[in-house]
């Protein structure tokens, strides 16, 4: 059947230490920032509390932002309306929790978890459905037109915020966490809020699940390839448009999950909470590298840690600390920490 090709013994060039370390540099930034935090904050207990708080905040931002980065990477869509899914998720999830007040108020971990699961499922189902409609009605007509995407998705965000106000009223809603998630545990002299520890675990599970889907499944392969060169993926026979709709729905549902978690974290929800979170979400997506889930994860952890450390050391600087972080990272890597190689 075949004729052997000429003898060919190709070899990869030997990489220097710097070249071998380069891909891991963004990952190393997280422990470096944690170490800097330890140097700047002499009390170990305070540093530990802030570190857990920062990681928890970072995980929640990652959950909210991961869908946005994939949507941008896959179809070059800039969705300024992504924050709407955060708000919807928070309102639907909190409404479910309020309806299940007896379960959340009971001193039973099992009942608390069931109530939380129902709230999360409700929030993700609602935001997934709204995401599907949002993509069909608002995003699809403006493929390939960035300016129109910005304007129309911001318009969509405003409309959804107003709908939330119509449905739930204009007042902010205060909530209390389920009994099992209240309070803190003490570790090495530091008080670590239970809810924040749960948020860290949930964030890690979501990240691991996304990594698994993206790295170990065919659909993940299509998504990763589509982020780089959508035209070629279609030429291989895959209907990228359908994949994109699926990613958009999944990303919206994740934003909904993030909304529930963010609401419980802050213990208050408002119609514009998603819009407020968009600043951090965009910073994370940009410094991570547009389209990169791993970059988004690392970026979110850096933003969460930075915000908490700086707010403790110099509260007035907290607001600008993440902007400064973004500037520094973009000066180092203008395409973000883990840029996705796009086809020309």
């Amino acid at each position: 059947m075949t004729t052997a090709a000429p003898k060919h013994t190709p070899k990869m060039a030997e990489l220097s230490l710097g070249q071998r370390l380069a891909p891991w540099m963004p990952v190393l930034l997280v422990p470096v920032l944690v170490a800097l935090g330890a140097l700047a904050i002499p009390q170990t207990s305070s540093w530990l509390t802030l570190t857990v708080s920062g990681l928890a905040m970072g995980m929640m931002i990652f959950i909210m932002a991961s869908g946005l980065t994939l949507v941008f990477g896959l179809m070059d869509v800039i969705n300024f309306g992504h924050g709407a899914f955060v708000s919807i998720g928070a309102f639907v999830g909190v409404s479910v929790l309020l309806m299940l007040g007896q379960m959340t108020g009971a001193p039973s971990l099992g009942l608390n978890l069931i109530a939380l699961m129902l709230a999360v499922v409700g929030a993700m189902a609602a935001t997934g459905a709204v995401g599907w409609a949002f993509e069909k009605v608002i995003v699809m007509p403006v493929y390939g037109h960035h300016l129109k995407q910005i304007l129309v998705t911001m318009g969509g965000l405003i409309v959804i915020e107003q709908l939330i106000i119509v449905l739930w009223g204009p007042e902010e809603i205060y909530i209390t966490r389920p009994e099992a998630l209240k309070g803190a545990i003490t570790f090495a002299g530091a008080a670590l809020e239970k809810y924040r520890l749960v948020a860290v675990v949930v964030g890690l599970i979501v990240f691991a699940a996304m990594r698994f889907v993206l790295r170990r499944t065919k659909i993940g392969l299509i998504v990763r390839a589509g982020v780089q060169n959508g035209e070629m993926v279609e030429a291989l026979g895959y209907r990228l448009r359908r994949v994109f709709v699926g990613v958009f729905i999944a990303g919206s549902a994740l934003a909904g999950l993030g909304g529930v978690m963010w609401g419980l974290y802050q213990e208050v929800i408002t119609a514009h909470m998603g819009n407020d979170a968009m600043i951090l979400i965009f910073i994370v997506v940009i410094i991570g590298g547009l389209g990169s889930v791993e970059g988004c994860f690392i970026g979110a952890l850096l933003v969460g840690l930075m915000q908490n450390y700086v707010a403790y050391i110099e509260p007035k600087a907290a607001l600008i600390s993440n902007i400064a972080l973004m500037v520094l990272i973009l000066m180092w890597r203008p395409m973000g920490m883990i840029p996705v190689v796009k086809a020309k």
């Binding site: 990763r224 780089q228 030429a235 996705v340």
Partner: peptide, 9 residues
């Protein structure tokens, strides 16, 4: 013509 390789894969 541009080969369409997925570089990150």
């Amino acid at each position: 013509e541009d080969m369409g390789i997925f570089s990150d894969l």
